[in-house]
Write a protein that binds this DNA or RNA. Structure first.
Length: 423
RNA sequence: GGAGAGAUGGCAGAGCGGUCUAAUGCGGCGGUCUUGAAAACCGUUGUCCUUCACGGGACCGGGGGUUCGAAUCCCUCUCUCUCCGCCA
C-alpha cells in the first residue's frame, strides 16, 4: 500500500510513475486525496465534540458527588445532544476512512527510477548472462520425455490422483527434489539466513499484507470452510512473521529463508507453456526474505541477485538476468530482477527466480516498522527472492545434461543426491 | 467434537461504572554514587489520528450495545489455556 503522506505530498509524481506500470491512477489518486481532506476535517470536528462531551461528563460526576442532582440533570441533556452529534460524525468519518482505504489498496507500488519503460516481457532489459550453452544433438529430448524414459517424474499418475499440474516425483526424481531443497537452504543458511518452515495455509489478513489480496484473489487456492488460502509462495507466511512488529534498528537486517510447497491456480494460463514442469499448480521453492533499513535496501537487492546467481552458477546452467520493465512488474514491487535459465531441448528461457524490492509497500500494509537511532519510527523495507524455484531448474538440468548414458548431475549437487547420474 | 477458564502497556500482573491522564513489579532509557562494573537511590518509559505549534482525540483481543460517563455491565465474533473425547 502506498504511503498516504507520500501521495498527499507528491500526487503528480505518483501518477507519472504509475503510468510506467501502465496503470492509470489519476482519478484514483484524486479521489484518495479528496477523501483524505474530508476525513481530516471531520476528524477535527469530531475531536472537538468529544472533548466537550468528556468535559461535561466529568462535571456531571462532580455535581453528583456534591449532591447537586438538578444541575447534573441539566448537564446530562447537553451531553446527550453532544453524543448524538458525535455519533453522526463518527459514522461519517468511518465512511470516509473506509472509502479512502479501499481506494488506496487498489494502487500498485510505484516503480523505482531505474525501471525500464515497456509493456511486455519483450521490453525487459537483460542485465547480464552467464553459464555456457550446451550443444545437444538434433534429436535431443524434452524433459518430459526424459522424465518418462528414466521414470523419475510421473505426470499421468498425478493427473489421475489430483489433476494436471500436480506431478509425482519418483525414485531419483524425488531424491533430486530433496537434494535441490537442501542445497538451496544450506546456501542461504551459510549467508546468514534463518531457516523457517511455515504453514502452507494462511488467513486473509496475511494474504492481504504481502499484497496477494485483493490483487491476486482467484489465483490462490481457497479453503472455504475455514477461510484459509494455500500459499502461492513462502514469502507470504514468512514476511508476515513480522506483521505488526516494531523492530529496533539494531535488529536489522532480518534474514529469513524457507522451503515450502507453493500452490497456484494459474487460472487462465493454458497452452503450450504448461507442458511438463513448465507451469505447475503445486511446486517446490526455497525463498529468501529480507527486512532491512530503507537506506540499504537497494544494495541488499543486488546482494540477493548475487546470491541467486551463485546458485545457478553452481548448478552450471546457462542463465540471464532481466530487469523487468514497468509493464511486466508485479503489483507490489518497486524493482524486480528475473532470472531465466535456458532449457536446451525446448530452446526456451524459463523463469526460475524473481527478486524484488517492495520498499515500504508491504510494510505499510502490515505495519512493519523499526525505531531508528534517533527514536523515530520508520517503515522498514521488505525484499524477497526465489532461491530457487525447483521445477524449471529440474527441467533445465534434465534437458541440458542429457547424454546417451544418462543425465549427468552438476558436482555441487552430488553430495546431496549421493549419485552423479540419472540412468 | 463436549465442558470450563481467560484475553489489560516490552513482559508479569492489579483494577470489575466516575482524578484509570491504568496500581505495582520486572525490563528499557537517563542520572547520582564508583577507578570501572554491580548493587542502591532518583528520574523517565507505548501506539495511532490531528495541529506550524500549544493542544485535542482514539486505543485495556475484534465488532456492536447499555449509560451523562465503560478496562469495568450486556450481546457477538476471534483467539488462547485446562480437562474429556478423537487422532498423525
Amino acid at each position: 500500500m502506498l504511503n498516504l503522506q507520500y501521495l498527499r505530498a507528491n500526487p503528480d509524481e505518483a501518477v507519472k510513475l504509475l503510468a510506467k506500470k501502465h496503470f492509470d491512477s489519476k482519478k484514483l489518486i484524486d479521489e484518495v486525496i479528496s477523501m483524505d481532506i474530508m476525513r481530516r476535517s471531520t476528524q477535527a470536528e469530531l475531536d472537538l465534540l468529544l472533548s466537550q462531551s468528556n468535559k461535561i461528563s466529568k462535571e456531571i460526576g462532580q455535581l453528583f458527588a456534591q449532591g447537586k442532582q438538578e444541575d447534573a440533570a441539566e448537564k446530562r441533556k447537553e451531553s446527550v445532544r453532544l453524543r448524538d452529534d458525535a455519533r453522526m460524525l463518527e459514522n461519517k468519518l468511518k465512511s470516509y476512512e473506509d472509502k479512502m482505504y479501499q481506494l488506496l489498496v487498489l494502487l500498485p507500488n510505484v516503480p523505482h527510477d531505474s525501471v525500464p519503460d515497456g509493456k511486455t516481457p519483450e521490453d525487459n532489459v537483460t542485465v547480464r548472462a552467464g553459464g555456457s550453452m550446451p550443444s545437444l544433438p538434433e534429436h535431443a529430448k524434452s524433459h518430459w520425455e526424459l522424465a518418462a524414459q528414466y521414470d523419475i517424474i510421473d505426470f499421468e499418475i498425478g493427473n489421475k490422483v489430483t489433476g494436471s499440474g500436480f506431478p509425482f516425483y519418483k525414485g531419483k526424481g524425488a531424491k533430486l527434489q530433496r537434494a535441490l531443497i537442501s542445497f538451496f537452504l544450506d546456501h542461504a543458511i551459510a549467508k546468514g539466513y534463518v531457516e523457517y518452515q511455515p504453514p502452507l495455509l494462511v488467513n486473509g489478513e496475511t494474504a492481504f499484507a504481502t499484497g496477494q489480496l485483493p490483487d491476486k484473489d482467484g489465483q490462490m487456492y481457497f479453503v472455504s470452510d475455514d477461510k484459509y488460502y494455500l500459499i502461492p509462495t513462502a514469502e507470504v507466511p514468512v514476511t508476515n512473521v513480522y506483521r505488526d512488529v516494531m523492530l529496533k534498528e539494531e535488529q536489522l537486517p532480518v534474514k529469513m529463508t524457507a522451503y515450502s510447497q507453493c500452490f497456484r491456480r494459474e487460472a487462465g494460463s493454458y497452452g503450450k507453456d504448461v507442458r511438463g514442469l513448465n507451469r505447475l499448480h503445486q511446486f517446490d521453492k526455497v525463498e529468501i526474505v529480507r527486512i532491512d533499513h530503507p537506506d540499504r535496501s537497494y544494495d541488499v537487492l543486488e546482494e540477493m541477485v548475487i546470491h541467486v546467481e551463485e546458485l545457478i552458477n553452481k548448478l552450471e546452467l546457462p542463465y540471464r538476468i532481466l530487469k523487468l520493465c514497468g509493464g511486466d512488474m508485479s503489483f507490489a514491487s518497486a524493482l524486480t530482477y528475473d532470472f531465466e535459465v535456458f532449457c536446451a531441448a525446448q530452446k526456451k528461457w524459463l523463469e526460475v527466480s524473481s527478486v524484488s524490492n517492495f520498499e515500504t509497500f508491504q510494510s505499510n500494509r502490515m505495519k512493519l516498522r523499526f525505531k531508528d537511532r534517533d527514536g523515530k519510527i520508520q517503515l522498514a523495507h521488505t525484499l524477497n527472492g526465489s532461491a530457487l524455484a525447483l521445477p524449471r531448474i529440474v527441467a533445465s538440468l534434465l534437458e541440458n545434461n542429457q547424454a546417451a548414458d544418462g543425465i549427468k548431475m552438476p558436482s555441487a549437487l552430488i553430495p546431496y543426491t549421493g549419485w552423479n547420474k540419472i540412468d
